[in-house]
Structure formats: C-alpha cells, structure tokens
Simulated assay, not measured.
Amino acid sequence: MIKKFLVSITGLILILGGVFSGFIFIEGHMLYSSAIKEIPIKDKVIEIQNTSSYISSEEISEYFLNAIVSIEDRRFTDHRGFDRRSFLRAILSNIESKSFAEGGSTITQQLAKNMYFSHEKKLSRKVAELLVALDIERLYKKDEILELYVNIIYYGDGYYGVKDATYGYFNISPKDMNLDQATLLAGIPNAPSALALSNHIGRARVRQREVVESMVENGYISMTEASSILNQ
C-alpha cells in the first residue's frame, strides 16, 4: 500500500513539474517573441552601435577583453550561447544557498538580457533571454558578441559601456588600460552598485583578485604578471 502511494505521489509530482515547466517555457517564448517583434535583433544591434560611446574591440585593451571572458564566461569561445556546466553549477549553488543568487548566464545571455529584458529574476525571463542568446550566436561572431557586451554593460557610477567607464574612472582611453586597470574594471559588472570605484574601492580590489586569479587559471597571464597586481 505504501509503495503504491509513493509511486502515485511521484507520478503526480512529475506531472505537475512537467506542466509547470511547460507553462514557464510558453511564457518565456511569448516574452522572447514580443521583444524581437518590437525591435528585431539586427536593428537593436545597429541601434547600440550607433551610440556615441560605442567603440570597436580593436580600440579596447586586450587585457580587458581577456579579463572579461576569463571571469564572466571562461568557455565563451566553445559554447553556442548556453553553457550547460555553468548552468548546473549555478543550480546547485542556488539550492545550497536557498536563493536565486546565481544564474549561470553566458556572456551572450547577459548581452541578450541587457539588450531586451529587465533584471527581474523570473524563470520565464531566463527562457526568453536564452532564446535571444541563441539567435545572437547564430547571427554574429564571437568577437562581435564580446564587443557588443563590453559596450552595453553597466560599470557603476553612472558609466555604461567601456569607453565611458575608462575615461570616467581612469581618464584614459580603453586601449590604454594596463593590467591593473583592466582587471579592476572587469570585476565591476558582477555587482556594479556594490563595486563602483567611487565608494567601494576595497570591495572592487577583492573582486579584482578573483579576476586576476581566474586569468592565471585560464592561461591569459603568467603568475609573474599576476603577482605584480596581487602584491600591491
């Protein structure tokens, strides 16, 4: 009797889970369809590229571009918009912390979110974001996606885009960032309000250490180069 009851309960849970998942996907697909119908992806990209602060990747420090990939999406060049390993790790972390603190988003998914959606932590929005990200990966090359990303994200203190951030924080062009400046700036988009350099330089330096260590781990810089930053 108990065995039959457990089987029945398990079956009911699976059915309800399937219904819930289906509802989330349908709602997410509706958000996605509405967004790209209002402004198609290619039109949205052109709109971003036509802003006065937009610059090409050739005008940005290679240290900075490598730092962003290393800390935000280490498998950026390998996936097609969705990183299964990062997603599963984020789920486990959220279960452990009993929160929705991590999303496991790739750079392409974050670009999609900043292009079209709010930062509201809803599962349907994550579905819509993923669908846009898959389209972006189909339409653009990786270097184009990274270029768009660093030009659109928020760096705290009212600075949107890498050009405004580097001139605002360091009074230099993005191309002239050294390793110290590049790794400091690359850590800020994780939590712009909490890491903005005007009021939270201590927190930003702690985050910078994570960026530098990730770059060593991922082969972007040597331990000697890292030590020049970490020993300051």
Rank of each mutant, 00 (worst) to 15 (best):
D83E: 08
L111Y: 06
S70W: 01
F82I: 14
F82G: 01
A90P: 08
S93A: 15
D78I: 06
Q109Y: 04
N94K: 03
G103A: 06
R74K: 13
Q109V: 05
E72S: 09
A67P: 09
F76Y: 10
F76N: 07
R85W: 05
A90H: 12
S93V: 07
R75E: 11
G81P: 11
I68K: 02
T108P: 09
E102I: 00
D83Q: 04
L88I: 15
D73F: 08
F76V: 03
R80Y: 13
S105M: 06
I95E: 05
G81Y: 03
H79K: 08
I107W: 01
S70Y: 04
S70K: 04
V69Q: 10
S70M: 05
I91L: 15
D78L: 12
V69P: 00
E72V: 09
R89E: 11
I68T: 13
E102D: 05
A90L: 07
S70H: 00
F76K: 08
A101D: 15
I71G: 08
I71H: 02
G81S: 07
R84S: 12
S93Y: 11
E102F: 15
G103V: 03
F87K: 07
D83H: 01
T108H: 10
T77L: 14
R80C: 08
E72L: 02
S93M: 14
I68V: 15
E102L: 10
H79F: 05
Q110K: 06
E102N: 13
E72G: 09
T106R: 06
F87Y: 14
I95F: 14
R89G: 11
A67L: 00
L92C: 03
K98C: 01
I91F: 12
S86Q: 15
S86F: 03
F76S: 07
G103H: 01
I71Q: 01
A67I: 03
Q109K: 03
I71A: 05
L92D: 10
R75L: 09
I107F: 05
K98R: 15
G103F: 02
E72K: 03
I95T: 05
T106P: 08
S105P: 11
I95Y: 11
F87C: 03
I91Q: 10
L92A: 15
E96Y: 13
L88T: 13
R80S: 13
R74H: 12
E96K: 14
N94M: 01
Q109C: 10
S86T: 12
